[in-house]
Write a protein that binds this DNA or RNA. Sequence first.
DNA 1: TATTAGCACTCGTTTTGGGTGAGTGCTAAT
DNA 2: ATTAGCACTCACCCAAAACGAGTGCTAATA
Lengths: 346, 346
Amino acid sequence: MSGTELNERAQLLLKNLVERYIRDGQPVGSRTLSRESSMVLSPATIRNVMADLEDLGFIHAPHTSAGRVPTIRGYRLFVDSLLTIQPLKKSVISTLQRRIGNNEDPGKLLASASRQLSDVTSMAGVVMLPKREQLSLRQVEFLPLSHNRVLVILVVNEKEVQNRIIQTQRNYSAAELQQIANYLNQLCAGQELRTVRQTLLNEMEDTRSSMNQLMADAIQMAQQAFTEEEQNGDFLLAGQTNLMSYEEMGNLEKLRKLFDAFNRKRDILKLLDQSLHAEGVQIFIGEESGYEVLDECSVVASPYKVDGEVIGVLGVIGPTRMAYDRVIPIVDVTAQLLGTTLNQIK
Amino acid sequence: MSGTELNERAQLLLKNLVERYIRDGQPVGSRTLSRESSMVLSPATIRNVMADLEDLGFIHAPHTSAGRVPTIRGYRLFVDSLLTIQPLKKSVISTLQRRIGNNEDPGKLLASASRQLSDVTSMAGVVMLPKREQLSLRQVEFLPLSHNRVLVILVVNEKEVQNRIIQTQRNYSAAELQQIANYLNQLCAGQELRTVRQTLLNEMEDTRSSMNQLMADAIQMAQQAFTEEEQNGDFLLAGQTNLMSYEEMGNLEKLRKLFDAFNRKRDILKLLDQSLHAEGVQIFIGEESGYEVLDECSVVASPYKVDGEVIGVLGVIGPTRMAYDRVIPIVDVTAQLLGTTLNQIK
DNA sequence: TATTAGCACTCGTTTTGGGTGAGTGCTAAT
DNA sequence: ATTAGCACTCACCCAAAACGAGTGCTAATA
């Protein structure tokens, strides 16, 4: 029984222990496990096995006369190779589908997905906003404002509208701006924003010789307008209050730090980013995430795709002691549903 | 000493009591008050006075052998006529001003104001988004999408861009849409959205006879586009996690309900609306608000103006036991600063 | 008449200590 | 290798006791 490998029996026992602990949150003792477990073993034997499991760091006793509780390592082994996931029933899937809806507005869709996740899991649901690598310019429009400022309206990706205000050298009339816009639209429409910037550079060379001042202005203006505001990414969070109902979150101070992290967004984003280039559901258990505030939380995340390309991540955040077998398929399916729905309205 | 009027001494005592209670959160007893209070009275006398105050419902003893705690009525009297507010120092005001900044983007400005409020008060800061009564249309633009849908871009109030998608009867070409936009721009530019709708109705009458199909289409399209999505109002909340640090919020269940109310927004909005047509700082103490979740909270709110017209409300939400003397001027000044800053960038 | 000292009393809080029970590790028997 | 038996540990519960801040009432006082 000594050694670093876990035999069949020990694994099964660990599985039972974790399941039991997840179910009712109490440290589980040898007696319980003996009764519960499928195999017939006396408590004493089980104690021996548990002692081994403890030596190997899979479980841990809060104090001498308490049962055992899974450690992070224990959970890890559990989700990696012990967990049996029952696939969702068709009916459940279609309920999820229906509840996500197929709103025209992708923003609303994402919000609904995160709410969905939080509702069905009773934890916090999170949906990262899509990273749109390729923004293809459809049309640009300029409107004069006071104080040498110009309102720029960009229509990208067919139906998305961005607008920003730029500062110009002098005052342009509406007519001039119209001309500039026409010029730029003709030059750049349909291109991706990054190639647009290249196009502008090239054009600048050409125009310099031809000496058309307005064109030169146009290019300079466009340079400003198309400077991508670095979009640091963002996410939608729903149901964070659900987390307040878990007694393992009883520590208000910790809970507060967690909520602050949600507001700060940065750490959570970084964590989600890690799933961006992964395939399928990823799980971060407790400290594994590397973020102290998530000490006692697990994150179950999955990338979602549009056009076969991963554009974002969604998932749930909850206590380490969560029903992984239920949560994992929910996250998985929701990611797929969101992807296909986004595809449809693209 | 019996009677319903409070004599000078009783008022002063109440003032001291509330101040003391606000300072350290413990029920305050006759002994403490005797030591603390400016006037020289024995604990026994003070007990007599306190008994009266209790009869009149201004204070309340949590149990027989505890000191007294202000009731809602007590707080009310305190803030209404006992409270001495020290005006903010110039330096503090300019710090506030600086920290709000003068971002070009009004959205960022509002966010910064609410963060500001929460930071300096260590409570939750809230800023209602401006109600813009008059949206004056500057320009409208149509872009064809697939499936008989059209992307409408509205530029209102000089520099604000709205966009929505409408469903049309048939497919229009870009050129047709351009024509329609020109027509509408000529017809309606500069008008307020509400008069625009009227203009359209009138125009419809006229056009019906002249039988120009495209114009008729244009009007129908505009009807759709200008149907105001009822903007139910919204607010920006910052620092709600601050509330988790007050021991009077120890009850997680209650705190959760409060946070849920923040997310629901509706109740909070209604409450803030009440300050919309008030002059100066308004205070809702505990149950006074009429919303159960705010039982143990007070809301200090003030309308803010642009162009001399009230367009929104801002304030803070915190425990009933808050330092009103400090919070009230902060809210007051912040409202003024936000107003003037908004004015500048308008 | 208003104020105050004195005193018995109340009641939440803290401390103490025994009892309980779930669970353990170890040892010896199977 | 497994199990029964047993002494031991320790969180938890509960009741009793000690504590102390604060009260209301009464009688004395200015």
